[in-house]
Structures are given as structure tokens and as C-alpha cells.
Deep mutational scan, measured.
Amino acid sequence: HNLTITQGKLFFHYNPKLCLSEIHKMEEVSGTKGRQERNDIALKTNGDQASCENELLKFSYIRTSFDKILLRWEPYWPPDFRDLLGFMLFYKEAPYQNVTEFDGQDACGSNSWTVVDIDPPLRSNDPKSQNHPGWLMRGLKPWTQYAIFVKTLVTFSDERRTYGAKSDIIYVQTDATNPSVPLDPISVSNSSSQIILKWKPPSDPNGNITHYLVFWERQAEDSELFELDYCLKGLKLPSRTWSPPFESEDSQKHNQSEYEDSAGECCSCPKTDSQILKELEESSFRKTFEDYLHNVVFVPRKTSSGTGAEDPRPSRKRRSLGDVGNVTVAVPTVAAFPNTSSTSVPTSPEEHRPFEKVVNKESLVISGLRHFTGYRIELQACNQDTPEERCSVAAYVSARTMPEAKADDIVGPVTHEIFENNVVHLMWQEPKEPNGLIVLYEVSYRRYGDEELHLCVSRKHFALERGCRLRGLSPGNYSVRIRATSLAGNGSWTEPTYFYVTDYLDVPSNIA
């Protein structure tokens, strides 16, 4: 807008934040220059609390790290170098490059900038070799853009010569660093050979998330399962459950009422301010606690030095998902009996873990797994792929695949051998790939016309006998059925096997 004052003059007093240069501009645009008398524009009460600059400061050096910015700028000295009290560095987070010096300023003089007072450097006698002032900004957020400017702080001049310097606002972004852990990993099994893994992005990506790394490792069953005799009275049979499938998407929606109208769909109840505040506090606490764990609990591995020492970490090797089922080394339970199943799973520490690289999504279907087997899954978020990966501390989750139908069934015939004193040795093959492992066998036998009897055969007993022995049988026709019990439950009964026990007292003698 054009402003013209045809008559009258300007009068400025007691404006401590208004620089004289701005008042002189007002004289020019209003056409009143030359009308004012000496005392109409006070030299001592206008701009006496402001830094009124008329020179431009330029930054000469900028260096960044993930949490620091090192700045240096060209030296500046007023005509009387004693008038320079120091520099004021202003900075704040700036997602967009549209910041002005006066953003967030209120009537009390406060604003949204963080201000650092910096002492002037030592003055050199040689004007050509003056030290460049600077400042190291610490405690910054990774991968965050900051708006920065600097200006001088000078003393009051009796001659009211307006001098000083100020830089333009520059924008500097800190470097990326390792992201925080992925949030809320959930693993479920939808079949006997697959596990579905879902997660949420890290709360602090500290860069642009480029991919996720998912490692999985087959877990050995508890050692007590191999040692305890679950045929003993009072000892509860062990059981394991597989990871249940995901709930429906509708039930997972946030901010939804727990109660549904019987007449149909209901609208979600909005969260109160107290609920939102509580969630923010919980989120802040979780982030602080995660940072504490990362800094205190997890110790970084030592990389190899120039002395030739090897990095103890196993090298990563990509495998196809079809090879995942046989990740671990199978060892027989008892070496003397080769027909026992290889369900003991000690994992070799030198073995390469299978892994998958996930790009542009937060889910993965891990296939080719062994049925009813526990897996430990390790999830890392990465925001750099080359020249070397920059990934987060791992988040861990466990899951067990679903049982395989008929995996616990005894394959092959049940054979028998009759000894003296009416002892019958029953023999059968253990299931080759049971659900988890076989903890015991149930032997059901009966003599024709009598009630059915049951015998429990422990895992250890089966390994020693290759089956079991029935003792003290009365003469007669017998039928026997056997079924295995694994961590997933009972298998199917075998087809009945028949044998006849004679009275050993009636056996004919070869003595003449």
C-alpha cells in the first residue's frame, strides 16, 4: 500500500525493539523526510534493546553428524571492536523451508527459537588472519532439518551509529543413524509349514526405512522333555500350542467401542483428552525405555581390526524358502538304536541362519518350516543398504507352526516275539517326523474274553527296548493296539495285532 503524509511529521519514542533503520525507511515511504526535528525521533529510546544489523554474515563451514552440527561463519568486528559482546545463534526444527525470524513471537518477546549466546573469538592483530567464530550444536535429532541463523550482539553506541551483522536463515539436516526397533511384532501360524509375521514401523526411523531383515531359527525343545518319565503317576503330560491366527481386521481397528449394538453396526467412541494424553505418555515412556535398553543392555560386537582377528559373527547367506525346513542338525536320541526319531534339535552355532529381506511392506510369510516346531524370529529395521547396512537392534518374537495331521501315527506293522515265561516283546517304529517329539506310547492289549488293559511306555523305555515287553501273560489269544502321544496330543491307534500265548508248562520236552 502507498502511504503519503502531505502535512505533519513523524514522532517515535520509547520503541526499544524498533531499529532506527526501520524508522528511516518509514520517513522515505511516507514522504516526511526532512520535516522531523532532532528530538522527534529519539536516538536513545528507539532500538536500544534490539540488534540492528546492516551487514550480512556468511557461514564459512558446515559439518553434520547424526546428532551434531558444527558451524563456522566469517569474522565480524565493528569499528570499535570492544562493542562486540558476542553472537546469538538461533535454531529450531523446520520440516519445511518457510521459516521466518519472527515465527511464534508474542507480545512478551518470546519466540519459538532456541538461542545460544556465543563469546567472540580472540581478536588477531592481523586483519587478514582473524579467527572464524563458530559453535557445535549438540543433542539434535537424527535425520531432522533445522533452520539456523546467527547475528551479532553489540553494545549501545553513544554516537548512535547503527552497526551489526546478521546471516540469512539456512537449512541444515542432520545425518541418518540406526533406527529404533520395529514396533509390535506379531507372529502367527496359518499352516503346519508357515508363519505369518506382521509389525509396525519404528517410532524413530532416523532416516528413510529402506528394508527390513527377518531372521528365523528353529528352537530346540526343553531338555526336561527328553529326561522326564511322563508315565509316572502324578506327572502331567506336557503340551505345546501353536500360535493362533490373526483376529479379523475389524476387531483390530483402534479407537473402536468394545460393545456392539445388537441391531447392527455401531460407531466408534472418540477417545477423551485424558485417554489420548495417557497414550502419549505411555508411548514416550516406551521410547525412553527402549533407548535405555539399547544403550545399557546391548553391547556392540567388536569388529575385526587390522591384526587379522576374525569377526566372530557368522556370515549372512541367503537361502531359498524351500530350504528352511531342514535348518537344524538332527541327532538321534540314543545312538545305539537307529530307529528312534531325530527330534532332539541342538543347533550348531556355526550354522548360517536363513533370512529374508523385506522391502516396502511390514509383513512376511515364512514358508518351508517344520510342522509343530518353535521358531525364534528376529526382526531388524534398516535405513541404508549400501555401502553397508545400517540397521536397528533386533526385536524378537516366537511362534510355533501348526501340527501336521497323521504325523504322530505309527507307520509300519507292530511285530512281536514270544519268549519263555510268557513274555512277549512288542516292537514298532517311532514316527519319523512327529509333531514336536514323542513323549510316550500307549499300549492297549486284551486277552479274548477279558477286559482291555493299558500300559504306558516312556520315551526312554522305548529307546532301550525298541518297544516294550509284556510279562506274566496268561495263555490265550491276544490283540494289541499302540498309539503315540506327542507334544500336540495323541496320534491314531494302530491296526490290531494278534498273537497267541501258550502255557509254557505244557511245552513238550526233548528229553527222552
Rank of each mutant, 00 (worst) to 15 (best):
S203T: 10
D204T: 03
G207P: 04
N208W: 12
I209L: 11
H211R: 05
Y212K: 00
V214M: 04
F215R: 13
F215I: 10
F215W: 01
W216Y: 11
W216I: 10
W216A: 05
E217G: 12
R218G: 14
A220K: 06
D222L: 11
E224V: 12
L225H: 05
L225V: 09
F226P: 09
C231H: 03
L232E: 07
L232A: 10
L232I: 13
L232M: 09
G234D: 11
K236V: 11
L237R: 14
P238E: 05
P238H: 04
S239R: 10
S239V: 04
S239W: 14
W242K: 05
P244K: 09
S248V: 10
E249H: 07
D250L: 14
S251N: 09
Q252G: 14
Q252C: 13
Q252S: 13
K253P: 04
H254L: 13
N255Q: 13
Q256M: 04
Q256S: 06
Q256I: 13
S257F: 14
E258N: 06
E258D: 11
Y259K: 13
E260Y: 07
E260R: 13
E260C: 05
S262N: 08
A263T: 07
A263P: 10
A263L: 11
A263F: 04
E265Y: 01
E265A: 14
C266F: 08
S268Q: 14
C269S: 04
T272R: 13
D273G: 06
D273P: 15
Q275N: 07
I276G: 09
L277V: 12
L277M: 15
K278M: 06
K278D: 15
K278H: 02
K278S: 14
L280V: 14
E281L: 11
E282G: 14
R286F: 12
K287Q: 08
F289V: 12
D291E: 14
Y292E: 05
V296I: 06
V296M: 10
V297E: 09
V297M: 09
V297S: 08
F298N: 13
F298V: 06
R301F: 02
R301W: 10
T303H: 07
S304V: 10
S304T: 07
S305V: 12
S305F: 11
S305A: 10
G306N: 09
G306K: 12
T307L: 12
G308K: 02
G308L: 09
A309R: 11
D311H: 14
R313K: 15
R313P: 14
P314S: 11
S315V: 10
R318L: 13
S320P: 06
S320F: 11
L321Q: 15
D323Y: 13
V327K: 15
V329S: 10
V331S: 13
P332V: 06
P332Y: 04
A335M: 11
A335W: 05
A335P: 12
F337I: 08
F337Q: 11
N339Q: 10
T340E: 14
S341T: 09
S342E: 06
S344N: 06
S344F: 06
S344T: 12
V345N: 07
T347V: 03
T347K: 08
P349E: 00
P349S: 12
E350Q: 09
H352Y: 06
R353P: 14
R353D: 15
R353Q: 15
P354V: 06
P354E: 11
F355C: 13
F355V: 12
E356Y: 12
K357T: 08
K357F: 14
N360P: 09
N360Q: 08
K361N: 11
S363N: 05
S363A: 13
V365T: 04
V365S: 09
I366M: 11
I366G: 00
I366N: 00
S367Q: 11
G368P: 11
G368S: 09
L369A: 03
L369Q: 03
R370K: 15
H371M: 01
F372I: 01
G374Q: 13
G374C: 15
Y375C: 01
Y375F: 09
Y375K: 01
Y375R: 01
R376H: 14
I377H: 02
L379F: 07
L379Y: 04
Q380I: 14
Q380R: 04
A381V: 05
N383F: 05
N383Q: 07
T386L: 15
E389Q: 13
E389G: 05
E389L: 10
R390S: 09
C391T: 02
C391P: 02
S392P: 04
S392Y: 02
S392D: 02
V393R: 15
A395D: 09
A395P: 02
Y396A: 07
Y396C: 07
V397M: 13
V397Y: 09
S398D: 08
A399Q: 11
R400P: 01
R400L: 04
T401R: 00
M402C: 15
M402W: 10
P403Q: 06
P403E: 06
A405R: 12
D408S: 02
D409R: 12
I410Q: 03
I410R: 02
P413G: 15
E417G: 07
I418Q: 07
I418L: 08
I418A: 09
I418K: 06
E420P: 13
N421A: 09
N422Q: 10
V424G: 02
H425M: 07
H425N: 14
L426R: 01
Q429Y: 09
E430W: 03
E433M: 06
N435H: 01
G436L: 10
L437F: 03
L437Q: 12
L437T: 00
I438K: 01
I438L: 08
Y441L: 00
V443I: 09
Y445H: 09
Y448E: 02
E451F: 12
E451M: 14
L453D: 06
L453S: 06
L453P: 03
L453V: 08
H454M: 15
H454D: 14
H454T: 09
L455T: 10
L455H: 11
C456S: 03
S458Q: 04
S458N: 06
R459F: 08
K460M: 11
K460Y: 05
K460R: 07
H461M: 12
H461Y: 12
F462N: 04
F462V: 06
L464G: 11
E465V: 14
E465K: 05
R466H: 12
G467N: 02
G467P: 01
G467K: 07
C468T: 02
C468G: 02
R471S: 05
G472Y: 09
S474I: 11
P475A: 10
P475C: 06
G476H: 00
G476R: 00
Y478S: 00
S479P: 00
V480Y: 11
R481V: 09
A484M: 07
S486P: 00
L487Y: 12
L487V: 07
A488Q: 06
G489D: 03
W493S: 03
W493Y: 15
T494L: 02
E495L: 04
P496G: 01
T497P: 00
Y498Q: 07
F499K: 01
Y500M: 05
V501I: 08
D503E: 07
D503R: 12
D503K: 12
D503M: 07
D506E: 05
